[in-house]
Amino acid sequence: MKQQTIRATATVSGPLLHAPGSATVVFSPAAEDTGWVFIRSDLPGNPQIPCRPENIDVRYRWTTVRRGEASVSVVEHVLAACRGLEIDNLFISVDTDGIPMPDGGSAKPFVDALSGVGIICQAKPRNLLTIDRPVFVAGSRGDPMTEKIASSQSYIVALPGNGFEVIYVLEYPNTPLGTQIVKFDVNPDAFVREIAPARSFITSWELNRLQNEQATALFGPAIDEVPIVHPNHNFVQRLSLEAARHKALDLIGDLALLGRPIQGTFIGIRSGHRLNRELVLSLARQFEEANP
């Protein structure tokens, strides 16, 4: 299969999650072997941040890329859209330090914008990374701010496979979410229909805890569009198993930080951005050892 980019520029605007205000992201075609590159258009010199493992900086509820003094936060949804649509080369220019998060954190606005301008083939073949042996990472569920309410262990297993398969197991006992299991053969059609529309979510007790600790400054206006899970209320889902679908979306986006599309089967169990990062770093070390 050949590498791909977009035919023309595309734009998405919306509220920020990680800070007050809004942002606009502009997607532009890129040459073969460019990969996915973020550009801070608001900073002198328009510094670039390539999607590479060494540039990952996971924060509270999102993934950040950082190079020198320049950073861009909440990159996982836009990278999931790039990977899901099989776009290999793209410049992603943003006018502040974060990607906008419209539509409650789904990838649909990015998918609509990118597919709307057209995706074109390039001359060179796609440069796939391939899992050739099992890789396993484990950690505590969640992160330091939520470990008291989510203390179960979390795991991700990467296995050899012929395509790109993602399986995710979500467990929120005693809540409307319960246990959810999803499995996807990730290709553009499946991504657009079954993964991209899935919104993010936050639990009411997590939000209350943050408010009690006066930590709500972590969130910008995009949090108002994120569904809240209440223990004793029905969770209105856009599509079945929406929460697990969104976790699969996050994993797809974080795996893009390897810098190239990857082939294999990935099984996430109660995992999140921090463990996704550990998997990416572990895989990067494996690929470096195999190709010194």
Results as ranks from 00 to 15, higher is better:
Ala198Gln: 10
Phe201Met: 10
Trp205Asp: 15
Val182Phe: 05
Val182Ala: 10
Gln180Phe: 04
Pro188Thr: 10
Ser204Lys: 01
Arg199Tyr: 08
Phe201Glu: 10
Thr203Tyr: 00
Val186Ile: 15
Asp189Lys: 15
Glu194Ile: 12
Arg199Glu: 11
Arg193Asn: 12
Lys183Tyr: 14
Trp205Gly: 07
Ala190Gln: 13
Gln180Asp: 04
Val192Gly: 00
Thr203Leu: 07
Arg193Ile: 08
Ser204Trp: 01
Glu194Trp: 13
Phe191Gln: 05
Phe191Val: 05
Thr175Asn: 05
Phe201Thr: 12
Asp189Val: 14
Glu194Gln: 14
Ala198Lys: 11
Phe184Cys: 05
Trp205Tyr: 14
Asp189Trp: 13
Glu206Leu: 10
Val182His: 07
Thr179Asp: 02
Gln180Gly: 09
Asp189Gly: 10
Val186Asp: 09
Ile181His: 01
Asp185Met: 11
Ile181Gly: 01
Trp205Asn: 14
Leu207His: 08
Pro197Ile: 09
Glu206Tyr: 06
Arg199Cys: 11
Thr175Tyr: 02
Ser200Ile: 03
Ala196Asn: 06
Phe191Ile: 09
Val192Ala: 04
Leu177Ile: 14
Glu194Cys: 13
Glu194Tyr: 14
Pro176Trp: 01
Thr175His: 06
Ile195Pro: 09
Phe184Arg: 06
Trp205Met: 15
Ala198Asp: 12
Phe184Trp: 07
Asn187Trp: 04
Ile195Tyr: 02
Ile195Arg: 05
Phe191Ser: 05
Leu207Asp: 09
Pro188Ser: 03
Pro197Ala: 02
Glu206Arg: 02
Pro197Gln: 03
Thr175Met: 05
Asn187Tyr: 02
Phe201Ser: 07
Ala196Cys: 05
Thr179Lys: 04
